[in-house]
């Protein structure tokens, strides 16, 4: 039988290498999935209502209409910023690029938050009487 001829022809180094490669790729699957969570996305809310849910890994620019005018949100290189806003103090623009947390424009009632599907930061810290 030829198959036996081959498996007997495999040296022990061959077998060790084969097992090492399978372990390497299997552990790679696990570690890389953990290092780069795929679920992370950007949620944009206006006046408390969600209007957009965009993937963080896709560069794009969107315009939303807030309470006092337009707000332009830009996603680039897994980071988000508010590019333009119709609010008086422009605090949200000065916050710059963020890769976690949220950007909040109070006058315009726009909230841009980053989080995954299974976001942990939404759990309640404590409830007081």
């Amino acid at each position: 039988m030829r198959l036996r001829e081959i498996t007997e022809g495999m040296t022990s180094a061959d077998k060790i290498l084969l097992i090492a490669l399978i372990l390497l790729s299997a552990s790679g699957f696990i570690f890389i999935k953990k290092a780069f969570p795929q679920g992370s996305d950007v949620g944009i809310e206006v006046n408390g209502k969600p209007v957009y849910r965009l993937p963080l890994n896709k560069d794009t620019t969107v315009r939303v209409i807030g309470a006092s005018g337009d707000t332009i949100v830009e996603i680039k290189n897994r980071k988000v910023r508010i590019k333009e806003s119709a609010c008086p103090k422009q605090i949200c623009i000065h916050n710059g690029w963020i890769d976690r947390g949220a950007l909040i424009c109070l006058p315009n009632k726009v909230v841009v938050s980053i989080g995954g599907e299974d976001r942990q930061d939404k759990t309640i810290d404590a409830i007081t009487g």
């Binding site: 490669l21 790679g28 890389i32 780069f36």
Partner: peptide, 20 residues
């Protein structure tokens, strides 16, 4: 680097199968 790292375990596994 991110898409490269994401795809590398898949490629190494497939390479191991075709390699053997």
């Amino acid at each position: 680097i991110e898409p490269i790292l994401l795809v590398s375990p898949v490629l190494i596994l497939l390479g191991t199968i075709t390699g053997i």
